[in-house]
């Protein structure tokens, strides 16, 4: 198992190195001169020159790359062209916001997707199976921004049940940032008013994103469950005189979870990185919204930072999935 995880970690590092190379190369190809961008409007030449030296832009490209990676390792993503502030400090809170949203959305996806998938496989062609099929089609076919707007229209504009923008009511004082998740922080601070506000603000965006993932998870779960239910060891479980419930929930579920796990991991990666549209619709101050703004202003260091963080999220999720595979399936542990 240790060797197995070590192998995964090596692959992870290799991927991250390639991503830094690619992002660095793209930044090099851009026409914008970072020093000019940072120096402000109509800077005198000496200021630009001085900045260039400060940023190491006068050095050869390979050296610049090494400096860039060195910075990354210290959590230094450079400074934003737009705000002139260090990107890392700007991102901290936003990572928390995105992480909080993506995690809640993933929980929604799993809680809807897994039971729906199991029920759809067990009761084929029943109402629940049709619902699962509809959910999958709906989740994949309806664009997230449209679903988001629909939610806002129904639950905010028409019914006025739920808030539709931001992470909490702006008149409230946010709790001290410990985890950068407002929900967790407000629980830690025992600030129930903020908790309530943060929770209600979470519902619509989490549901929007969660429905997207739930459909896919339900479909994969159904397919793998159907497959497993035909296995010899399921027949053997019946021959042992086990109840249907036990066969499905103990003998089949764990096997059927393996393919679903891959999809859950990928969904989480997509939620962490691809929540751009949802964050825009719900003015959720996360990574996606930050990335969109960075792109609009050609704020290259910020774009690079977002790309690297999203890659990191994907890669880490894959690592977690690989490890969980090893935990669930003894054959994987040996095979590494």
């Amino acid at each position: 198992m240790v060797r197995y995880i070590a192998g995964r970690l090596v692959a992870l590092v290799a991927i991250l190195i390639s991503v830094t190379v690619v992002t660095f190369a793209i930044a090099q190809l851009s026409t914008a001169d970072p020093a000019v961008q940072l120096a402000g409007d109509f800077p005198p030449d000496e200021v630009v020159q001085q900045l260039r030296e400060e940023l190491g832009l006068d050095k050869p490209v390979p050296v610049q790359y090494v400096l860039y990676v060195k910075g990354l390792l210290h959590g230094d993503f450079g400074r934003s062209y737009f705000s002139k502030q260090p990107i890392s400090s700007e991102l901290m809170e936003r990572i928390g916001a995105t992480f909080e949203l993506a995690t809640t959305a993933l929980l929604v996806s799993i809680l809807i997707g897994i039971p729906t998938g199991i029920a759809a496989a067990v009761y084929r062609n029943s109402a629940i199976d049709h619902f699962g099929r509809f959910l999958a089609l709906f989740g994949t076919a309806v664009p997230v921004f449209f679903l988001g707007l629909l939610m806002v229209r129904v639950f905010y504009t028409e019914l006025n049940l739920l808030p539709a923008s931001g992470r909490y009511s702006l008149e409230l004082q946010p709790p001290r940032a410990v985890t950068n998740s407002i929900i967790v922080d407000s629980i830690l601070a025992r600030d129930w008013i903020v908790l309530r506000s943060a929770t209600t603000h979470m519902i619509l965006p989490a549901l929007t994103l969660g429905l997207f993932g739930a459909g896919v998870i339900a479909r994969v779960m159904r397919a793998s469950m159907l497959d497993i239910l035909n296995a010899d060891y399921i027949i053997m479980a019946r021959v042992k005189g086990l109840s249907f419930r036990r066969i499905v929930l103990v003998h089949a579920l764990r096997n059927a979870m393996l393919p679903a796990l891959t999809v859950i991991g990928l969904t989480y990666g997509a939620l962490l990185g691809g929540a751009v549209l949802t964050e825009t619709v719900f003015s959720w101050p996360g990574l996606g919204l930050y990335g969109v703004r960075a792109l609009t202003y050609l704020d290259f260091p910020a774009v690079m930072a977002v790309v690297i963080l999203i890659t990191l999220a994907y890669v880490l999720m894959n690592l977690v999935v690989d490890i969980l595979y090893g935990v669930l399936d003894p054959r994987v542990r040996v095979g590494a």
Partner: peptide
């Protein structure tokens, strides 16, 4: 009723033992 019968009264030795055993337990 079958569940009470299987295993306790009538049991099966399957043909392919590898396939008949759950790989994850």
């Amino acid at each position: 009723a079958w569940q009470r019968l299987r295993g306790r009264e009538i049991a099966l030795i399957p043909q392919n033992a590898l396939a008949a055993l759950n790989p994850l337990f």
